[in-house]
Design a protein around this nucleic acid. Structure first.
Lengths: 155, 155
DNA sequence: GTATATGCAAAGCATTTGCATTAAA
DNA sequence: TTTAATGCAAATGCTTTGCATATAC
C-alpha cells in the first residue's frame, strides 16, 4: 500500500481552506488515546498559535466530526471529547470516578451482531461498546459499590 | 419469591418523602421501552398534576438516578433520556436519523468481557452496548451512507 | 478579487441552584 | 413541630451563531 495521506492532505482534498488555526487544531488532535475536550484543544492549539479563539475551535471540531475525521464521544455528563482515531475500529473503557478514558481493541467482538428478532426492523450501521470501571488510580480510594446498570456485571 | 416491592415502596423504604409531584413523576416513568427526556416527563407529570415544576422534575430525576432506580441515557447531542427499566440487563438500539430508541436483550452477550491485556488495570463494573442504525420509518427516506465509526460495520 | 474563516460577544439549550414558601412526616 | 420538598427565577456550563473584519485561494 502507498503512503497514507495525512489529515491535512485529506482536508485539502475536500476543499478545506487550510488556515493556521485549523492546522493548530489538527496538530493537537493527533495520536492514539487522545480524547480531548474543546477546552483541551483550545489550550493545546494556543501553545502553537496563541490567538486561536474558542469559537474557531468549536467550528473546526464540528467540521471534522461531520467529515468523519474525528469521533465525538459523550461519556458522562461533562463536555464532549474528541478522538482522532477513526481508522481503527475500537471501543472505550471509561473510569466511572475520574472519567479517564482509554481505547480498547477487544478481539472477538468484530463480528458482534444483534439477532434478527431483536432488530425491531432497524438496519444496523454501527456498534459502540463502553466498558465502565474504575481505573488504577481511583480503585484504591473509591468506596462506591460496583453498579448493576444497563450492562452486565463483570468480574 | 414474594411480591416485588413497587417503586414507591422502595423509595419510601429509603426514607424518601413521597409528595404528589414525585408520585406523578414516578408514575410517568413506568413500563418498558420508556426513554423520556426531562421535558417529556414534565409534560406527562402535568397531565396528572398540573402544578409540577421543571426544577422538581430535574431534582427528582437526579435523585432516582442516584438511587439506581433510573438509568440516564445520553444518545447523540440532545437532552438526557431516562429509562426506568433497571431490573433487566439490556442494551440499546438507536436510530441515527430520528433517535428513536428501543431496548434490546441480545442473548450471548451476558458474559461479554474484556481481555485482561486490554483492561489497562481497570476494575470493570459494567458494559453498555449501543447499536446504531436506521429505524423502519427512516431507512426508506434516508440517503445517508452507513457510517464506519467507533464500532464495527454490521450487515 | 472573492468566497470563506476568524473572533468577539451575544444567544441558546439543558441543567443546577439559592431562597422564601409550603407540606410531609 | 421539624425537616425536607417545592417553585420560581437567576445562574451555570457547554455549544452555536450573527456579524464585521481579515485572509486563503
Amino acid at each position: 500500500m502507498g503512503p497514507a495521506p495525512t489529515l491535512l492532505e485529506r482536508l485539502r482534498a475536500r476543499g478545506w481552506r487550510v488556515t493556521p488555526q485549523r492546522r493548530a487544531v489538527a496538530q493537537v488532535l493527533t495520536g492514539d488515546h487522545v480524547h480531548l475536550t474543546a477546552d483541551d484543544v483550545l489550550e493545546g492549539a494556543r501553545t502553537i498559535l496563541p490567538e486561536v479563539s474558542l469559537a474557531t475551535v468549536y467550528n473546526t471540531l464540528r467540521d471534522l466530526v461531520e467529515m468523519g475525521e474525528l469521533l465525538e464521544l459523550r461519556v458522562g455528563n461533562g463536555p464532549a471529547r474528541y478522538d482522532p482515531n477513526t481508522g481503527t475500529a475500537h471501543h472505550h473503557l471509561v473510569c466511572t470516578v475520574c472519567h479517564r478514558l482509554v481505547d480498547v481493541h477487544p478481539a472477538g467482538l468484530d463480528d458482534l451482531g444483534l439477532p434478527l428478532d431483536q432488530r425491531h426492523g432497524y438496519v444496523l450501521d454501527e456498534i459502540d461498546i463502553t466498558f465502565r470501571g474504575r481505573c488504577p488510580n481511583c480503585v484504591r480510594t473509591d468506596t462506591t459499590k460496583p453498579r448493576v446498570g444497563t450492562g452486565t456485571g463483570v468480574t
